[in-house]
Amino acid sequence: MTANVNIAIKHTSLLISGALLGLLHAGLANASGYPVTVQSCDRQVTFDHAPKAAVSNDVNLTEMMLALGLQDHMAGFTGVSGWKTLDPTLRNGIGELKELSPKYPSKEVLLGADADFYFAGWNYGMRVGGGVTPDTLAPLGIKVYELTESCIHIMDKPKVSMDDLYIDLLNLGRIFDKEEQAQSLVKGYQEDLTNFQANLTPLKTIPKVFVYDSGEEQPFTSGRYGMPTALIEAAGGKNIVDDVQKSWTQIGWEAVIDRAPEFIIIVNYGDVTAEQKINFLRSNPAFKNIPAVKNNHFVILEYIEATPGPRNINAIKRLAEAFRTAL
């Protein structure tokens, strides 16, 4: 089993999909200027120049923009304070940028900001059939780039991997004429993760992990296409609902009890604190025999760590260390 764990980790750390390699080459090919065309879910979007009044939705997407130094190209951000507290590090990076809407923006909010670009995702600022989508914003002159992890809501895609994050950063680099910065950032993440994994103590067995986002009657969790699955696998574990063909979804508690996770990741955000979620799990007699609950094996990840973004590598490190400290 140890060999299998090591092979899985090595595969995760070295995986660079054909799409990702294509982006690297395409970025170099288009380094001389515009137009550039990027793949956004099932669409191709062409840019004749870098957006000048971009809006990002949610903390993790906003931090991707900040990681590439795109503040001067931004009109503001949306979708943070309505659900989450603005992280101090993120607040410092944002500087003078304003939050245009505490939750998902309307078309009127984006028009009021003279936005020419919206970086969002399905259930990260847009809803299928909602009022703000690539189709509804196109007539207003607002181009949309969709978060790769979220594409599963509208099309088939491969199982989530760290490539989902890398592709988004590389595409943003191309859109905003920051190819070199994006490639350097992605290369740094890849090397950091590979070096970290190479020095990990081998695990005797693969830890079974459950992601608890929220909900008491039915837990909201992350399945095969949600970023936590990629984080768990990169750390050497396995998501117990890896067979659920969703990104973020509700399941029944019976499945959690039956699959007996050895670790529970608590996603921390919103009105219910991580400690309150842990207390709920500890106090319910139905959960007393779940190994993670019985052994107090909880790992708290902030929302910004559990969703695609620059903090994913550190989240993997924390998970990997927790798996090895407890087992």
Rank of each mutant, 00 (worst) to 15 (best):
T2V: 15
N4W: 05
A8G: 02
I9D: 00
K10T: 08
L15M: 03
I16P: 01
I16T: 09
A26E: 14
G27I: 01
A29F: 13
A31F: 02
Y34K: 08
Q39K: 09
Q39E: 13
C41Q: 04
D42I: 07
Q44V: 07
H49T: 04
A50C: 12
K52D: 09
K52T: 05
A54G: 15
D58A: 15
L61W: 01
M64W: 04
A67Y: 10
L68D: 01
L70T: 01
L70R: 01
M74A: 05
M74E: 05
F77V: 02
T78M: 04
G79W: 00
V80N: 06
K84Q: 15
P88I: 03
G93V: 01
G95A: 01
G95I: 00
E96W: 01
L100Q: 07
P102D: 03
P102E: 04
L111Y: 01
A113T: 04
D114Y: 07
Y118L: 08
F119L: 12
W122G: 00
Y124C: 10
Y124A: 13
M126N: 10
P134S: 00
P134E: 00
A138F: 07
I142S: 04
I142Q: 01
Y145A: 06
E146N: 14
T148S: 08
T148N: 13
C151T: 02
C151H: 00
M155G: 05
D156T: 08
K157Y: 05
K159R: 14
S161H: 02
M162C: 02
I167S: 01
G173S: 03
R174A: 12
I175S: 03
L185M: 03
V186D: 02
K187D: 09
G188H: 05
E191M: 07
N195P: 06
N195L: 15
N195C: 06
N199G: 14
P202G: 14
T205G: 13
I206G: 08
F210C: 02
V211L: 02
Y212N: 01
T221E: 12
T221S: 11
Y225P: 04
Y225T: 03
G226A: 15
L231S: 09
L231V: 05
L231P: 04
A234S: 08
A234Y: 06
G236T: 03
K238L: 08
K238A: 13
N239E: 07
D242K: 09
D242M: 10
D242A: 09
D243Y: 04
Q245V: 11
S247A: 12
S247Y: 11
T249S: 06
Q250E: 14
Q250P: 07
W253D: 06
I257C: 05
R259A: 07
A260D: 11
P261E: 02
E262Y: 05
G270F: 12
V272H: 05
R282Q: 15
N284G: 03
F287G: 10
I290Q: 02
A292C: 03
A292R: 03
V293P: 10
K294E: 13
F298S: 09
I300M: 00
I300S: 06
E305D: 15
E305W: 08
I313P: 12
I313F: 15
K317L: 09
K317S: 11
F323Y: 12
F323P: 07
A326R: 13
L327Q: 11
L327T: 15
